[in-house]
């Protein structure tokens, strides 16, 4: 079918909203085909979301009736010090962790895009850590960052630096987790690499002939042309960081979840603690909705700002 005739059919249907039998049949078939997904979405996404909204307005009891407490759960957050600590810790990871990971993975992607001998081997090496499960890599990093026997402090010792007590020092625990996260940035690197393949070689060559330096070509051609990729990585990275949980959950010092000194008490960790440990599902649900709106707000903000800086070749 020619594209023009397809457009005309679509337009024709728009102007004629009365559906025929075949149209209903198509709809029925379409619904039937997506029924497994639809059932899953309604049962396991929409229904829990709706119920968590209800719970957020109640004092939840696992087996007793719900007690409405209007917006008390939301009001309680304002006076809950640990809530603010958890939010601040999470924002720290978003503000520092996401850009650092983006810049580093972009730099790695540029290096891995260089036409050098063994290019594919280097690419595999950089991607490998990202397929190691988060649990295993966190446990591994606990040893790498061990203050006495760890590889990191041993190496620092060779150059005369006394390494910190990484994960057990509140000043170093979050940077350590960012470092740990960077180890698994293979996925982001691959997305950047694919974006780099789309950077116009003609433009790069033309700029080179005009005498543009490597940095100028990077600054004025490569970076703008991969800006949609950067936007994608930024938004997914930000959402992932707001939901940061696994590594912090696995890493519990002697003080339990959030230690040392609540410096690794992230939003999702505190939400889990309130719901599944203290059985306060009403409060946990309210926290989940606040997180949802924070993420939504940040995503909309980034999308708005990005209009000015993102270049879509199409």
């Amino acid at each position: 079918m020619r594209l023009s005739s397809l457009y005309s059919r679509i337009n024709h249907n728009h102007s004629a909203p009365v559906w025929g039998r075949s149209r209903y049949r198509s709809l029925r078939l379409g619904l039937l085909f997506i029924a497994p997904w639809l059932a899953g979405f309604l049962l396991f996404t929409l229904y829990p979301m709706g119920m968590s909204l209800v719970y957020s307005l109640t004092e939840y009891h696992t087996r007793g009736p719900l007690e409405w407490n209007q917006f008390q759960n939301f009001i309680n957050m304002f006076s809950d010090d640990l809530f603010w600590t958890a939010l601040k810790n999470t924002l720290y990871m978003v503000v520092f962790g996401v850009p650092i990971t983006l810049i580093t993975s972009f730099a790695c992607a540029i290096l891995l895009n260089l036409k050098v001998k063994g290019q594919s081997i280097y690419r595999v090496i950089y991607f490998l850590p990202s397929i190691v499960p988060a649990v295993a890599s966190t446990l591994l990093w606990l040893w790498i960052l061990n203050p006495q026997a760890g590889v990191m402090n041993t190496l620092l010792g060779y150059i005369g630096i006394k390494g910190p007590n990484w994960l057990n020092n509140p000043a170093w625990s979050k940077p350590s987790l960012i470092l740990l996260g960077m180890w698994g940035m293979g996925g982001t690197i691959v997305i950047y690499l694919s974006g780099l393949q789309d950077v116009s070689k003609n433009l790069l060559e033309a700029a080179e002939l005009d005498g543009a330096s490597w940095f100028q070509r990077l600054r004025h051609i490569t970076i703008p042309m991969v800006s949609p990729i950067t936007l994608f990585n930024l938004i997914t990275g930000m959402i992932g960081m707001f939901q940061y949980f696994t590594q912090a959950y696995i890493f519990r010092g002697t003080g339990g979840l959030g230690s040392p000194l609540s410096s690794t008490l992230f939003y999702s960790v505190y939400l889990y603690q309130q719901g599944f440990q203290y059985l306060d599902f009403g409060y946990a649900s309210a926290m989940a909705w606040v997180l949802f709106f924070i993420i939504l707000g940040c995503t909309v903000l980034i999308l708005k700002i990005s209009n000015r800086y993102t270049y879509y070749a199409g």
Binding site: W143, N146, P147, Q148, A149, N165, N168, N169
Partner: peptide
């Protein structure tokens, strides 16, 4: 504090 903590946490798991 830092010395004792570094010593005790250095034992790992």
């Amino acid at each position: 504090y830092d010395e004792v903590l570094a010593f005790s946490t250095g034992f790992g798991d």
